[in-house]
Design a binder for these strands. Sequence first.
DNA 1: TGAAGCATGTAATTTGTTACATGATTGG
DNA 2: CCAATCATGTAACAAATTACATGCTTCA
Lengths: 163, 163
Amino acid sequence: MLGLLRATGPCSPYDLKLRVAGSLGNFWTVAHSHLYAEPDRLVADGLASVEQERGGRRRKTYAINAAGDAALDGWLATPRPALAEIRNPALLQVFFGADPVAIARAQLPLHEAKLAEYEVLAAAAADAPRGTQPGPRIALEAGLRTERVWVRYWRELSAGDTG
Amino acid sequence: MLGLLRATGPCSPYDLKLRVAGSLGNFWTVAHSHLYAEPDRLVADGLASVEQERGGRRRKTYAINAAGDAALDGWLATPRPALAEIRNPALLQVFFGADPVAIARAQLPLHEAKLAEYEVLAAAAADAPRGTQPGPRIALEAGLRTERVWVRYWRELSAGDTG
DNA sequence: TGAAGCATGTAATTTGTTACATGATTGG
DNA sequence: CCAATCATGTAACAAATTACATGCTTCA
C-alpha cells in the first residue's frame, strides 16, 4: 500500500484502484474495500497523511509521509527468504483427480487471453520514455514467462497429453 | 480437505499433515491448525464422520462419507473459470522498485533447491506402479515447469540482465 | 428527470495465521 | 527416567472477501 501511494502520489482510494487495475492487479489483486480501509491504518500508524474534502463526495486524499517512505525503503531493501506458492485452484482439482482435459479446456482460453494482454502491455512498455521506473516492466516479464508456461501446459493437457 | 480425506482414507489430522508435506504442500500450504479444525466442520456439515479414541492420545479419526464423496465429485467436475494469481512477494518488491539484483540473489537459491526437490519427486513418480492416481504427477509437472521459469528468471536478474 | 454506472465507503462474515498449551512416545 | 520431539488440539488474533448501502454525475 505504501508502494502504491508513493508511486501514485497524493490520491484517493479510487485513484489507487485505477492504478492497480492493469498493472499490479495482474499479479496481486487487491479488493477495493482494502484500498479504502488500509490507508486509514497507515495514517493511524503515522506512515501517511490524509486530507478530506469538505463538500461533494467528501473524498479523502492520502499521501505517504517521511516515516512511510522510510518504512517502504526498509521493506524494499530486505529480500524475503521465502518462495511464493502456486496455489492454483485448477491445479488443485487436477491433483485430486479431476479430468485434466476438462480443466485444461477451461483454463487454456483464460491463459491465452492473459498472455495476449501481457504482450500488449509489454509492447507498450518497450516504448516507455527513459527514466520510467523499471520495476513494473521487470515484473511484467515474469508474468509473460509464467503465462507462456501455463498456456503450453494446459494446451498439452487439453490435447490429452498427460506426460 | 475432502480430497485429502478421500485420498488418504480414514485418518487423523496428523496423518493428513504427513500426506500434505511432500505432495500437496508443495503448491498449496495448509496450516496444521487448519487440519485439526476443518474436519470438524465437515462432520458438522454431514460430509464426513469422526470417531474418537478412548484412551491414549484420544485421537480422532475422520473419514469421508457418501455425501462428502458426492460433494467432492461435484467440485472436481466443475472447472472454475478463474486464473490463479502469481502473488509473489519478491516480485512485488521488484515491482515497487527494490533492487532486482538483491532480490534475485535471495530468490535464486531457493528456487534452485525447490527445482532439485521436484526433480527427485518426478524421478520417483516415474517409477510409480501403474494404477497410481495421475493427478499428483500432472500437478508436479506444473511445479517443475514453473520452477524452471523462475530459476531462469532470477538467474538472469541476478546477473544484472533487466531485459 | 430518471436510469446507469461511477465513486465511496462500512459492516458482517469467513478464512487464515500465530501463539499457546500440553500429553504421549522414544531413545539415550 | 529425563530430554527431545512427536502429536494433538484450542484460542486469540489478523486478514481478506463479500455483501450492503448510498451519494454523485452524466447522458439520453
